[in-house]
Amino acid sequence: MTGVGAPPAPAQTPAQAVAAAPPAPRRARWARAWRFRSLYLMLLPGLIYFAVYKYAPMYGVIIAFKDYNLGLGIVASPWADPWFKYFDQFFSSPYFGQLMVNTFLISAYKLFWGTVPCLVLALLFNECRVTWLRRWVQTISYMPHFLSWVIVFGITVAFVSQSTGLINRGLEGLGAEPIGFLTSTDWFRTILVGADTWKDLGWGAIIYLAAMVGIDPERYEAARVDGAGRLRQIWHITLPGIRNVIILLFVLRLGNILDAGFEQVYVFYNVQVYSVADIIDTWVYRVGLEQLNFSLAAAVGLFKAVTGLVLIILANRLAKRWDGQLW
């Protein structure tokens, strides 16, 4: 909270106004905090959890700068020489550029195709007046989320395989050449992102739908009285009504832009499409974990985290403009 001297927020309640008003010397600040003791008490169990299970083990990141030795342990392992040895191993890999580009592109495509279709689907559900249709489609589109990537890959193969896939059978029927979708560097990312969208379409819509339910029906009523059609209602009431949820999800996903979905890529890719499919995490997996190179994994993890953090901070700045900031 910006605290002292901040211009009053539009929706400020009397209690907030009182709380934010007096310029606070130290004692007054404690006194003020004391007034919120029951709220702090509520936070306490969660904070303990984060302290123990998230922050306490964080000292472990130092292995990114050490030659981690399982026997000596994290603290006693010798410092890497030079200290950036494992960062260098990543940055100087001939594949560094390719990995960054692939990770970023796949992630960005997924960011778009994992958001917009879900949002549209949620709008469709929200606008659907036929309850049974809505219920059925909602349940059906939610089901693929429960299939593991191995199964989704099996299903994908049934559709796009070069010799047996339904799509290629169709193409052959039309007299066209079959396409090796999974081995083609032109098609692979499309297939990857398409499968991702398919899997989580209905699942991703749930959260937007939940947000839409929270919109006050009286606002729609008022708009109807003003003669606004359905599309204008969507544009002027529904979408602004869930704006903060959209912003929140977008910012959080932006922070994870260097996670392009390890599990899926690992299951889907093959050597012929490495040049468009190999991402940071699959590389680290092959280099680091197969050889128990935890220091490298930690160094790359640190790099991803810093990048994500910078992006989130920038995005949060931007989100402030729409009053959708995360903190």
Partner: peptide
């Protein structure tokens, strides 16, 4: 904590 995870072993 969403960005910085502590890693497997710690």
């Amino acid at each position: 904590t969403m960005m910085f995870s502590a890693g497997l072993i710690p």
